[in-house]
Design a protein around this nucleic acid. Structure first.
Lengths: 335, 335
DNA sequence: TTGAAAGCGATACCAC
DNA sequence: GTGGTATCGCTTTCAA
């Protein structure tokens, strides 16, 4: 293994000089700098991460806790993770993967062992049991999602309440008076997953404000196609607008609509809550509120990096929803 | 921070004794062991990972390179990752996430810096440019997938060639004479992604052997529903069996079939290649060949752990495909 | 602008 | 069965 001493010897300088060339923490003459840099390249030197962590108390590793249930929204999680890795690399950090299954103990372990410098937690629940313990960690923490009591932890997420409002506002603006929410499965609500309840809150509030009849339904994430739409129409025969906050059920629902000869948007308007990339790929491009997984991932990393840089005040950033009007919504037909 | 010296002092023993209690690498009297363990608990001691890595040249971290393109099969990747994390934790290891985007350099960096002890690489291509460099790493490596020239690297995967054969064999056995493969999009083949070509090879070979007419088509992963089936039927009007090796296109294809009034399996039989959990959730449970992401993830970790334990000979493990007969296949109707 | 050397917190060898 | 201590590779303070 090539060590800093090897580099120093080969370059004819002190190890500390090599260290400073790398870190840039003190002025180095251009000549020495070039010499050292060349030697590093020539020898193929890579600083030993463990030694570095030991001496500097920094690992340059971020821990990311992801939900690996299959019921959850896989595509969004992946997109988030991808952007987080990329953003982390831009700050010269790596990502260590933990799962929600491992519970709070995993977080304590990773931080106490100095495996990671900071922690990002996805899939936060309203009364998340991890919050109290995260507070005791004394390390930067960023929650993706918003618990009822963040207690001074930083949070990043789409503003789902505003998204719920926006979906209703759009349909109401077009003249729809009876709309139904196709939400995630009951298990999501049972867990108290914060985004689902926040969305519903906004959805319902805006419906009241605008005096439109709004009902909510929960569809299993595994829903493919079959009786879902028939059930819904039986209960809400005069519905003209659907808000789908359940990307996994989207293909099945649209298949049901097509099969039943219900035209979109002529007979029923559909607003989807899903990544834009998903919305545009349907034969009828969907009017949608984007789930900005990419932005949230990047923002989470930036927030955590800011905290690592010493900025220790908690900040909650809720991204404003963006509703893109595409081909799946229109004014309701007169009947 | 609580160090091993703090524990030693509090317990009235030498630091080395504490170390040995933890590692179990030498005999300790029950009395001392209990004393030390209690002290560790009481003080909340966690060994410093960096210090450990420095002294022992082991990080207890596995690097996993995942493909984070969105065109690729998200659900399978997630399932694989989930099982890999779980398996790794069973061996007291953590998982560091790298992406294919970072290229071969990332692997060199992670290994040379002693951030990880070994590497697992997903989404291997036929002529994967990473293979030559992986060979120079001098660390355990496991490929998920099989390149044309593994050159002594361990590989783990589903036996896709056998899967291709099995799909044809099942349909041919039922009496089908004209079948079509709905494969992944052209970009997958262009990358030379090994599983896709291996599947086709088995598919075609078995078709020849059984003298059934077999055609192959490539559907975009983003396919939802629309003209896909019409195109296919126009080109292959007398097809009676479909093999779908493209889970993302599955909902769209089935929607097309339903919409066109093509009954499954009465008019057309469908064999899917996808995780079992996916196959069983359709209204017509699909006859399928399972993509054993879970098993592959676990096996990959076990293989890498075996190598870390000193077993340095490369082993290629191709899991035999399991075809589960469900409701989407039947003998072809006589026309 | 550079060098020397004291840690950082474990492991594992050498003694007893 | 236990203790003492050199060592791992780097960062950073102190000196020059």
């Amino acid at each position: 293994m090539v060590t800093i001493n090897d580099v120093a010897a080969a370059a004819g300088v002190a190890p500390s000089t090599v260290s400073y060339v790398i870190s840039g923490k003190r002025a180095i003459s251009p000549k020495t700098r070039r010499l050292v840099e060349d030697t590093i390249r020539k020898l193929g030197y890579h600083p030993h991460a463990g030694a570095r962590a030991l001496a500097s108390s920094k690992t340059n590793v971020l821990a990311l806790v992801v939900p690996l249930r299959t019921d959850t929204n896989v595509a969004v999680v992946m997109e988030f993770v991808a952007s987080a890795v990329t953003a982390a690399r831009a700050y010269d950090h790596d990502l260590l993967l933990l799962t929600t299954d491992e519970g709070p103990a995993a977080l304590r372990r990773v931080v106490s062992s100095a495996i990671a410098d900071a922690v990002m937690v996805m899939d936060v629940e309203a009364a998340d049991p991890r919050v109290p313990m995260l507070l005791t960690l004394d390390r930067p923490v960023v929650l993706i999602g918003v618990p009822d009591h963040p207690d001074g932890l930083s949070c990043v997420d789409l503003d789902f309440a505003a998204a719920g409002e926006a979906s209703v506002a759009h349909l109401a603006g077009l003249g729809h008076r009876r709309i139904v929410l196709v939400g995630p499965g009951p298990e999501v609500y049972q867990r108290g997953t914060s985004y689902a309840t926040r969305f519903i809150r906004g959805f319902t509030a805006e419906a009241e404000r605008r005096d439109v009849q709004a009902a909510t339904t929960a569809w299993p994430a595994a829903y493919q196609h079959g009786g879902g739409l028939d059930d819904l129409l039986a209960r809400h025969p005069d519905v003209t607008g659907l808000v789908v906050h359940n990307e996994a059920a989207l293909p099945g629902l649209l298949s049901d609509l097509r099969y039943r000869g219900v035209r979109v948007p002529e007979d029923i308007s559909v607003v989807a809550v899903c990544p834009d990339s998903m919305a545009v790929h349907y034969p009828i491009p969907l009017t949608s509120i984007a789930i900005p997984a990419r932005e949230v991932g990047t923002l989470a990393v930036e927030t955590v990096m800011r905290q690592l840089a010493g900025h220790r005040t908690a900040e909650t950033r809720l991204l404003a929803p963006k509703l893109a009007v595409r081909a799946s919504t229109a004014p309701p037909a007169h009947r």
